[in-house]
Design a protein around this nucleic acid. Structure first.
Lengths: 157, 157
DNA sequence: CCAGCATTATTCATATATGAACAAAATCAT
DNA sequence: ATGATTTTGTTCATATATGAATAATGCTGG
């Protein structure tokens, strides 16, 4: 969970801000993982289950990779682990014998729902800690960084 | 480089902001990695070299782990790879036979300097894309999230 | 039709991260 | 002084990520 851009004492004001931004994001992700841990889920596992719930049906591994913005080989492994946990099941696609579909199980659905509750609580906390702040200005800065950045792929990941 | 908090159509305004924040941070980290790639460095490798340069002397692996905010076993592996690249050398600590010190090599120093230049350019770009925005408001929001968050460990990572 | 091309998932090698278990060495408390 | 504890780095098992190579299948242009 590291890979934080190191602060090398440069001390231009934006350098500090970038560092703060990335650190804050990592902190949020850590909270996110911690919120899911009691349910027995990790971030990536919850993400995959959520995409399946959201889709309302099974998805091919390729579709799952797209929606989770990652490469296929990653999904092969993630679905291996989810299947070992009994949260997801692979099935054949009758229309295309190359395709493997992943469908959520009963247990997977339960876990997703439990995880979603934890995340809702977390986001509630975040929302209340942000009350009264100028969130529009905040978003303008993020958008400025987003325009400049490689973020198309994150638009609705 | 994924593990982005998935957007599960909740659509409270702060949910969207959290998602945007984390996505932007990942985008910056991606740019950071891409800036270092031509030099032949990755983020973690550059981070370790930078801490050694900053320290001005060799550091024990434990000190390095602390400054990079990660566990010791991670540093063992990272220093293995840096040593294989010829960027760092392990040495014994005369004062404590348990301790292993990591010192930067000539080549390591060159690479760190080259990497630092690339990062300086990147931050320059960021700074110019942020011109005219209300960075104080931005920082206030980040601080609100930081206070609420597990971020002590990132204060000056 | 079928030869070549594209797509799909898997496997493999690798990088990064964590945490538990371990061995060696240092320190501390009695 | 010495037995217990702590500290240090390594090793191992595991999770997550990437990208290259591969095999199976599907598709397409002639």
């Amino acid at each position: 969970m590291n890979k934080i851009i190191p602060n090398l004492g440069s001390e231009r004001p934006t350098d500090r801000l970038v560092h703060l931004l990335v650190g804050t994001a990592h902190g949020l992700e850590k909270r996110y993982e911690e919120a899911l841990a009691p349910v027995g889920l990790t971030g990536p596992k919850f993400g995959a289950l959520s995409k399946l719930v959201q889709a309302g049906s099974s998805l091919s591994l390729g579709e799952l990779a797209e929606r989770l913005t990652c490469v296929r080989s990653n999904i092969t492994q993630l679905v291996d682990r989810l299947e070992a946990d009994g949260l997801v099941e692979r099935s054949e696609d009758p229309a295309d014998r190359r395709t493997v579909r992943a469908g959520i199980t009963e247990l997977g659905l339960e876990k997703q729902i439990a995880g979603a509750k934890m995340i809702a609580n977390l986001l509630e906390e975040v929302a209340s800690s942000l009350k009264g702040l100028d969130l529009d200005a905040f978003e303008r800065v993020l958008n400025a960084l987003g325009a400049f950045n490689v973020l198309a792929c994150y638009k609705d990941a």
